[in-house]
Design a protein around this nucleic acid. Structure first.
Ligand SMILES: [Mn+2]
Ligand SMILES: [Mn+2]
Ligand SMILES: [Zn+2]
Ligand SMILES: [Zn+2]
Lengths: 147, 147
DNA sequence: TTGTAATTTATAATGATTCTAAAGTAGTGT
DNA sequence: ACACTACTTTAGAATCATTATAAATTACAA
């Protein structure tokens, strides 16, 4: 749902309004504010709900309740506009990049960095489990500072 | 620390006692009971702390306090006898297989299944981040029932 | 046996997430 | 424009997992 997906970056909300409507979600003030914060950016955004709460508090005049933030993020996830990336017990990230892709994780800062699918040679799983099919393959590459 | 790592399966605790001592952990009744439950088995064991609490309640006569269970699992992890595998927000597993390896995750049952390193062709990351080095590469293969 | 530090324990505190039920709002039809 | 209804937001409570606290117990070395 990242804004530039639908053409040039927009200064208005019409794209979001349309997108929300087409998903059966009413374009409320709260949802639109959150859309702007999440999707009105060029780069992938990785955030925890706690991060998002802080950003909202800083950037938005009117308060958005915690329950609404949770509801909104979860409905965006359900509609496929966000992907959830679980890196450890403490941190579950949501990702505005909903394409099939992998991640670097800086184990000191917990920063996530996108790895395009093309950045990783095709993963070949030699073992197969009878009666099961593979639905996704995710690679997490943990990194830390050199030296 | 899996028991058979040190030779044939033992019926006594001497191996655990020795191993704990050599790690600077006193071999208390509680730690030994937990060792038995976790490591006295042939197959890799994947468990959540909640799982372990239930098993302890069922299999052990004397109660072990919740705090001790947490402390024990975390110190075993710190000493390298357990590995933590985070699959989603709801589930963080500990793994008695501390070797470098990957996992299948059944997305319906949340069951983890080990994938030996040899079961996955060598992962080649084409992108590299200046100033960072890779410390591990983990693959999570999500699966579900066929049909 | 004694002294000390490590460990266990019950319980409280914290923090994140979900639930609840009441108030507010958006879209529909008139 | 108005009213109706379903959807949404909200504050606050409830729940759940995890961590902190501080007192009692235990391991073990002297
Ligand atoms: Mn979710
Ligand atoms: Mn831990
Ligand atoms: Zn990403
Ligand atoms: Zn494993």
């Amino acid at each position: 749902m990242v804004c530039y997906k639908f053409g040039k970056k927009m200064n208005n909300n019409s794209i979001f309004i349309e997108k929300l409507r087409s998903s059966g979600l009413r374009p409320t003030k709260q949802r639109l504010e959150i859309c702007r914060l999440l999707f009105d950016r060029k780069k992938t955004f990785h955030f925890t709900i706690t991060d998002l709460c802080k950003i909202i508090k800083k950037e938005i005049n009117k308060k958005i309740s915690l329950a609404t933030i949770y509801n909104t993020v979860h409905s965006f996830k359900k509609k496929g506009y966000l992907k959830e990336i679980s890196v450890n017990r403490e941190k579950s990230y949501f990702d505005t990049n909903t394409s099939d892709h992998h991640h670097f994780l800086d184990i000191k800062t917990n920063e996530l960095i996108d790895l395009k699918k093309e950045d990783v040679d095709k993963i070949n799983i030699k073992k197969n489990l009878p009666g099961k099919k593979i639905t996704s393959i995710e690679v997490l590459v943990k990194i830390e500072n050199n030296n």
